[in-house]
């Protein structure tokens, strides 16, 4: 329990986070059509993973902590997925109001 990471690891993660921030700002200025948002989200997820795995130490923690940390995101996907499943299928029937 309570793994002690080296300072060097923390500095490297910090550096990577700064680079990714610059990357996300730069890519936002390029018109990539529908791909802008997925790329921005991919960068954000990468940054979040760096923080979760190293700053928060999940990489060195128990499997239980990993499951708990993942569960919140899984439940978010349930919320987003099912709710959008409603909105995105509303037009399918072709009957107004249904």
């Amino acid at each position: 329990m309570s793994h002690v990471s080296s300072k060097g690891l923390y500095y490297s993660v910090f550096f990577a986070l700064c680079v990714l921030t610059v990357v996300t700002v730069a890519i936002a200025r390029v018109d990539l059509g529908v791909m802008n948002t997925p790329i921005a989200l991919a960068v954000a997820v990468s940054k979040a993973m760096l923080v979760i795995l190293f700053f928060m130490g999940v990489k060195y923690n128990t499997p239980l902590t990993k499951v708990v940390a993942a569960s919140g995101f899984v439940w978010l996907i349930i919320l987003f997925g099912i709710t959008m499943g409603d909105y995105l299928t509303r037009g399918w029937l072709g009957v107004p109001g249904r």
């Binding site: 349930i78 099912i82 499943g85 409603d86 995105l88 299928t89 509303r90 399918w92 029937l93 249904r98």
Partner: peptide
């Protein structure tokens, strides 16, 4: 239990396909 909440909304504007699921 987290996957069934839309059965409270069958008569709202919810999509019929979502209602089916």
């Amino acid at each position: 239990g987290f996957l069934v909440w839309g059965h409270h909304m069958f008569v709202s504007s919810q999509s019929i396909y979502a209602g089916l699921v």
